[in-house]
């Protein structure tokens, strides 16, 4: 059994072999693998007795369930109005500069993916950035770069 199949088996055992477990199972895979590969979706379909198309249908609906390869750390910059007014464009510029990628891309070493997100719910403390599950409110260019450099160092 491949690693991914073992992971899926464990997740299905934990959440139960029902359709209602599909979201937690997919979320569990993304947590480990950072995206849902074709192989993973087919294996989930088999395990939960659903069609692969059905699994892909659910997966492709949700922003946080990526079906294309992503980096180990996913950076999401809030782009909605309050953060827009507080200068999210400058933050994006600074990160594009330091990571040498554009929004939507992943670094060569697969460490970081840079994305934008709709309202993250920190409008009073914008601009805000989400790295994986962790929130960084009230950032500026310098802080954003420091945070990312810190994570890069820690994961070396």
């Amino acid at each position: 059994m491949s690693n991914i199949e073992t992971l899926i088996k464990t997740l299905v055992e934990k959440h139960g072999k029902t359709r209602n477990s599909l979201m937690p199972v997919l979320q569990g895979i993304v947590k480990e693998e950072h995206f849902l590969s074709e192989e993973a979706m087919i294996a989930v379909a088999k395990e939960l007795d659903l069609s692969a198309a059905d699994v892909y249908g659910t997966a492709s609906f949700y922003t946080f369930l990526d079906t294309v390869p992503r980096g180990k750390n996913i950076i999401r910059i809030c782009k909605t109005i309050s953060c827009h007014m507080k200068g999210k464009d400058e933050i994006i510029e600074a990160l594009e500069d330091v990571l040498k990628i554009k929004v939507g891309e992943t670094t060569h070493d697969k460490k970081f993916t840079l994305l934008t997100a709709n309202c993250l719910g920190w409008c009073h403390k914008g601009p805000v950035m989400l790295v994986n599950d962790e929130v960084f409110p009230e950032i500026n260019q310098q802080k954003a770069v420091e945070i990312i450099e810190g994570i890069a160092k820690a994961s070396k």
Binding site: T18, R19, N20, S21, L22, M23, L26, Q27, G57, T58, F61, Y62, T63, F64, L65, A117, N118, C119
Partner: peptide
């Protein structure tokens, strides 16, 4: 998993049902 529409009650049920 990052979908605004799931705040709509019936969309939320669908999401909880794995759809």
């Amino acid at each position: 998993s990052g979908a605004y529409i799931c705040g709509e009650e019936s969309a939320l049920f669908e999401s909880m049902e794995g759809k």
